[in-house]
C-alpha cells in the first residue's frame, strides 16, 4: 500500500467515556497527508478530547487510532515523535529562556546537540523571536508565548501538528501573525488539525472543515479557500447553536 493512498491519520470507532459520561461515541475520521483540518463544535462536543487522544495524553475507552501507520497505544513513542502539539497552555518553564526551553525539548526528542542549536536558531527566526532568544519565558506576552510554543511544536519536525484553540487570548495583531505561521506550516507540507471557535478565520485558512456534534462527526467537507462556504451558517445549521466566541 503506498503512502499516497493510506490516510496519515486513521481514527476508527473511537469511544471515550469519563465514567458513564460518553464524550466521543464511535467517531471515525481519516486525514490525508497535507490536509489542514479545522475541528469545530460547541464546548463539550469532544474536540479537545479528540486532540488529547491523538497525542496520547489520554487513553481511549475503545476504538483505534493509527498515525503514519503506527497504532496507539502499542507504538506510542513512534506516534509521539511525529506529533507536535500547541495547546492553550504554553507547555514550557517560565524560569528558563526561550533557547533553554527549546534545548530541553530538543533533548527530550533526542535531537543531536550539534544539530539542535542550529534548528533552534532557525525556528526562533521563523517565529520572530530571535531577538528575545535569551530572555526568560515569563517576560513574554501571550502572543510571544504562543509563537515560542509553535517553535517548540515544530522542533522535532513532526508530520502532524495539533492546535488546541490557538487563538484564545490573542489580540488582532498576534492573531494575524498566527495566521501567517499556520499558512507557512501548511505550505511546507505538514498535516494540521486545529480546534477553534474562530469560524471566519478558519474559512480562509483550512482545506477541510469538520464539525463534531455530541461525540460524532456532524459535518465534513473540503473547503476551497478561494470561495469559502459560509461556515457560520453551516455551523448554526449542524449544531443548532449560534457560535459563541
Amino acid at each position: 500500500m503506498s503512502d499516497q493512498l493510506r490516510p496519515l491519520i486513521e481514527v476508527v470507532d473511537l469511544v471515550k467515556q469519563y465514567d458513564v459520561l460518553p464524550v466521543l461515541r464511535k467517531l471515525n475520521l481519516n486525514v490525508q497527508r497535507g490536509e489542514f483540518v479545522a475541528l469545530l463544535g460547541p464546548n463539550g462536543s469532544g474536540k479537545s478530547t479528540l486532540l488529547r487522544l491523538l497525542c496520547a495524553l489520554t487513553r481511549p475507552t475503545s476504538g483505534e487510532i493509527r498515525i503514519g501507520g503506527w497504532s496507539l497505544p502499542k507504538e506510542i513513542n513512534a506516534v509521539r515523535s511525529q506529533i507536535g502539539l500547541v495547546s492553550h497552555k504554553p507547555l514550557f518553564y517560565e524560569n528558563l529562556t526561550a533557547t533553554e526551553n527549546l534545548t530541553f525539548v530538543g533533548r527530550l526528542y533526542n535531537i543531536p546537540a550539534n544539530e539542535l542549536s542550529e534548528r533552534i536558531r532557525q525556528l526562533l527566526e521563523e517565529v520572530g523571536l530571535l531577538k528575545r532568544a535569551h530572555d526568560l519565558a515569563r517576560t513574554f506576552s501571550r502572543g510571544m508565548q504562543q509563537r515560542l510554543s509553535i517553535a517548540r511544536a515544530l522542533l522535532h519536525q513532526p508530520d502532524v501538528l495539533l492546535f488546541d484553540e490557538p487563538y484564545t487570548g490573542l489580540d488582532q495583531m498576534a492573531g494575524g501573525i498566527l495566521d501567517d505561521l499556520l499558512r507557512k506550516a501548511h505550505q511546507s507540507g505538514r498535516t494540521i488539525i486545529m480546534t477553534t471557535h474562530q469560524l471566519e478565520r478558519a474559512e480562509t485558512l483550512v482545506s477541510r472543515a469538520v464539525i463534531i456534534k455530541k461525540g460524532v462527526i456532524g459535518y465534513d467537507e473540503q473547503i476551497n479557500p478561494a470561495s469559502p462556504p459560509n461556515l457560520v451558517k453551516i455551523y448554526t445549521e449542524v449544531t443548532g447553536m449560534v457560535n459563541a466566541l
Partner: peptide
C-alpha cells in the same frame, strides 16, 4: 512548576 505552564504535558507528549 510542572503544572503551571504545562511543562509536565510537554514531557508527557514526548517520546
Amino acid at each position: 512548576t510542572e503544572r503551571e505552564l504545562g511543562g509536565m504535558d510537554a514531557m508527557m507528549i514526548s517520546p
